[in-house]
Design a protein around this nucleic acid. Structure first.
Lengths: 122, 122
DNA sequence: CTAAATGCAAACTATTTGCAACGAT
DNA sequence: ATCGTTGCAAATAGTTTGCATTTAG
């Protein structure tokens, strides 16, 4: 458990958004100027593999990382790009009922216009 | 409307799977030996933008393309990698009810062990 | 004829990896 | 002293793009 790993973990924990590796790297760099992208990617990959964080995949964007492990979904605003957590708790059982097979996991990404952008109209 | 574009469209139409750009390129090459990857990507991108085909995004894989436009979801087998179409018709309204906002679209990818792999056990 | 699409190659983005140096036990 | 982790740089994978040439209408 190196200080780099602790730093990355801490920054993700503190983040209110769903940062990318690069965003975390830039943050980390403020306090550890010679941390490298490789280290950030390596650690994020490890943590995602061991399941202590979650990797999110959005079309046409670098991956984002999520400190919240509990299964949940995401709504991406097509105007401002903000990513909101969404709880759809009956979804898993709904999928399994429909598929007739147990599922391991799923990823649901919703494209919407967030309420903030909606009120700003256009 | 060039013959390259028609070829790509035809190959996707005939495909029973959800091919990647490269798979389509290799198929197309059999009948049009000097077609280029760039052309395949350009055409797939255009068709996806105009909404006549759908681009699918799976973690850690190149994008796949889907001839079926009608909104539906996908179940990926973690053993064999096969991609199955899934119809979860009440999902959109369920999401909208839960979000309290109209949504533009969504992408749901399910990780499972397909029935074929399940019966082969392990 | 001319505007759009192609083929090719180079560029680009996100991410991974090899390796020598470093650091923690 | 050893083994895992780092920083760096180079490599990779997937995709996009610039441009001269070709093609379709």
């Amino acid at each position: 458990m190196t200080k780099q790993q602790l730093m990355i973990r801490k920054l993700l924990e503190q983040s209110e958004t769903h940062p990318t590796a690069e965003e975390l790297y830039l943050e980390a760099k403020k306090e550890m100027p010679n941390i490298s992208m490789g280290t950030v990617y390596r650690n994020l990959g490890q943590m995602a593999d061991e399941g202590t964080i979650v990797r999110l995949h959005f079309p046409g964007q670098p991956d984002h990382y999520d400190k919240t492990i509990r299964p949940h979904d995401h709504a991406i605003c097509v105007k401002c790009g903000s990513i909101a957590d969404v709880e759809l708790d009956s979804l898993k059982s709904m999928i399994e009922k429909s598929l007739n097979v147990g599922i391991l996991s799923y990823e649901l990404n919703i494209q919407c216009v967030c309420s903030s952008c909606q009120s700003k109209a256009s």
